[in-house]
């Protein structure tokens, strides 16, 4: 019962929607695809927030109760959530001066002020830390251990030069260079980083991405079918 119902549902809906893609009558297009897929699932998904709130609450509660090391920070987590949520949901939309509104999620609400001045700067800073991490990864991990790694780092270096003005400056400086041995050969072409970058993007890069796409598509289809046919049941999360 506890397993049969979900498995039957997955199979039935999986088969119906597999066919729905090929049928073009209004039942398929308007009802199955538009109404149920787009509108209903949106509503069903809304309630998943229940689990995130309870889980966060439970985790922090346990740590605080046990007085686990650093449990003070769990208070901060809870306070952050409760304060933010109550500004949005519980508090009334009252004017509190300085052009701000107490409740609600509008642009001039406290909720939005906290978002813009606390959450956004922190997230943007997290994001910007990638610049440091890229540098350190490049320094530490890009070693010419074998041909594969060498190819990766050389390509990365060429593309990096090709993307900044430096690339074209080098090309311009070099375009005067001529060889006595092979006068016809356009030597400066070797330094045309912008052009080489474009070629790398167009040819080997496209080839590699395309092959990955084929593989991923096959894997995706197989995984989907395994679930529809009940070969793969681990998403049920348990045998009970």
């Amino acid at each position: 019962m506890k397993r049969t119902i979900p498995l039957v549902l997955v199979f039935t809906l999986g088969v119906i929607y597999f066919f729905a893609g090929f049928f073009s009558n209004s039942f398929s297009v308007n009802f199955l695809q538009q109404e149920i897929y787009a509108n209903w699932l949106k509503i069903v998904g809304t309630f998943a927030i229940i689990m995130s709130v309870t889980s966060l609450w439970r985790r922090n509660y346990i740590k605080i109760k046990r007085k686990a090391p650093g449990y003070v920070y769990n208070y901060i987590e809870l306070i952050g959530m409760v304060v933010m949520a109550s500004f949005a949901v519980l508090l009334p939309k009252v004017n509190i001066g300085a052009g701000m509104v107490l409740g609600g999620i509008e642009k001039n609400s406290v909720f939005n002020w906290i978002f813009m001045n606390i959450q956004v700067p922190m997230q943007a800073t997290m994001f910007s830390m990638l610049a440091f991490y890229i540098a350190s990864a490049a320094y530490r991990a890009f070693r010419a251990r074998n041909i594969e790694a060498t190819l990766l780092l050389i390509t990365a270096a060429i593309v990096m030069i090709g993307r900044v003005p430096l690339g074209e400056n080098i090309y311009q400086a070099m375009s005067g260079v001529n060889s006595h041995f092979l006068p016809e050969f356009h030597w400066a072409g070797i330094f045309d980083f912008q052009g080489i970058t474009q070629w790398i993007l167009d040819i080997p890069n496209t080839a590699s991405k395309r092959a990955i796409v084929f593989g991923v598509a096959m894997g995706g289809i197989a995984t989907s079918l395994k679930i529809v046919f009940g070969i793969e049941k681990s998403w049920l999360g348990g045998t009970e």
């Binding site: 998943a48 995130s52 681990s234 348990g238 045998t239």
Partner: peptide, 15 residues
């Protein structure tokens, strides 16, 4: 990261 994935993973690990 996702509440629904969380419930599933929890059961998967318990199992």
């Amino acid at each position: 990261n996702d509440p629904i994935v969380y419930t599933v993973l929890r059961e998967v690990v318990r199992e």
